[in-house]
Amino acid sequence: IADRFPATALLAAAAMALSLILGIAMGAIAAAYRGRATDNVLLVISLALVSIPVFWLGTMLLIAVAATIRSFPLGGYSGATSLILPTLTLALGSAGYYSRVLHTSLCDAFDQDYVRTARGKGLSRTRVMLKHAMANALLPLVTLAGLDLAGLLSGVVLTETVFNWPGIGRLAADAVFNLDIPLIMGTVLFSAFLIVVVNLLVDLLYAWLDPRIRLAEIG
């Protein structure tokens, strides 16, 4: 498990970074153009990304790249380029889900009194979103991203199997097929440990993002 964890951690970090960048960008743009054509288009795109099965998307990416770029690595880990396809496979679905969550949170924040007060002071819509609404809207996203990160660090069986990635997910799949009970128990226990640690970090991050939590603890 210790030998396979660095490969899984690298893939998890890359996928989480890309999914957050795409999801936050899509959610913020959709909320800024709420009720317009841009919002509707991004809604359809995000729903499509969420609905695509991971194993199917990974297989289609392999077929498309193999047919167009013959020298591109299609499996295993042989450098930074081999990280592109599995990262896209993992990140696209999460990005669609994050964009819808952030869109809903931002739309709720726009209807709050503190946002209307900020607009009444003459602040631009962009500044109101980034400085006032975004801080509260990110709180639900932090929880979801933390749980997803724990799952990614525990190993993503389908993606690592499709791309022959030397991580914990593929190790767990091999252990199941080989009926290696100690290794199966080890991967499950390691996954549970990661979930507990990530949940603790999410709680600490909540206190940093939301001053009301810190004030409540002090009071």
Rank of each mutant, 00 (worst) to 15 (best):
A80T: 09
H103L: 01
L47C: 09
F72E: 09
M16V: 14
R100E: 00
V198Y: 00
P182I: 12
I213R: 06
T68C: 02
L102E: 02
L42Y: 08
P182K: 10
L215A: 12
A216Y: 09
A172M: 14
E217D: 12
G120N: 15
V115H: 03
K131P: 01
I218V: 14
S82P: 10
L47Y: 12
N178E: 14
M129S: 00
V65F: 04
F163P: 08
A17L: 11
N178C: 08
L147V: 09
V197N: 00
P6Y: 08
A28Q: 04
A66W: 03
A66N: 05
L47R: 14
A216F: 12
G151I: 09
L149M: 15
T187K: 06
P166E: 09
A37Q: 07
L204C: 10
D111Q: 13
L205N: 01
L147A: 09
L62Q: 09
I84R: 00
Y98F: 04
A192C: 07
V41M: 13
G35V: 01
L205K: 01
M26Q: 05
A150L: 09
R214Q: 11
T161L: 03
H103D: 01
N199G: 00
M185Q: 15
V44S: 08
W56K: 12
T126L: 10
F110P: 02
A207S: 12
A32L: 08
V65G: 02
L171M: 05
